[in-house]
Amino acid sequence: MKLKQLTSIMVATGLTALSGFSQAAELEITVQNLTRGIYFTPILITAHSPDQQLFNVGEAASTELQAMAEGGDISGLETAVDALSADTVANPAGGLLMPTAATTTTLSTMDGNTALSIVAMMLPTNDGFIGLNSWMIPEAPGTYTVYLNAYDAGTEANDEIRGGGAPGAPGLPVPPPLEDLVGNGGSGVTSEMTNATVHIHPGNLGDDEAAGGMSDISNTVQRWLNPVAMVTVTVSE
């Protein structure tokens, strides 16, 4: 009984302390694609309360995250974060973010929305995405740089062949700009999924045959090493 009281006091103190650091902020955010040959689908940038996460490594993806990672559809995540009173910018690049291209946007955050998350699907992959998970927005004005890794949503086998982007549909979605960059007729790298939680992406395997082979991905161009994206956040005075 006494312990419980103590705990509640500690929580209350913690909240008070937190509220001192939760003021609104004006941010300028740049997301740059660092890869040689991977495209990012529409990006979701959201500032939210730090007790929320879009994903967590080692935990199963939500259906909204799955839709983003398998097909680039951020509408479900956007609805979910809107319901949490998050401050959100959806699709700042207005479509695909090309290899090495950058997109810049501004974001005004409300009191309490002190954590920043960013996600976007990586193409061509089955369910790979760039991820920034609840990064605490610094209070001090200045420019901050964060490098993002590639994650695997753990919702689809990485067969690396043409297919669909709807949740549960096997294969890679291939939107028109990528039509000539993705191969054809691959037999499929694997039909197995060995980790059904979000994890660091093992990388594309690819092959050196545009037609046939086991993968429709080019192994010299559409692989990557982490990090895959650079995020620059400027906190205004």
Binding site: T35, R36, P99, T100, L205, T220, R223, W224, L225, V228
Partner: peptide, 20 residues
């Protein structure tokens, strides 16, 4: 090539499927 500086995708090697 792309004529743009990027992060490197890594080398593939003959051992990992780049026959040439």
């Amino acid at each position: 090539d792309a004529d743009l500086v990027s992060f490197h995708p890594g080398v593939v090697s003959a051992d990992d499927g780049l026959m040439m």
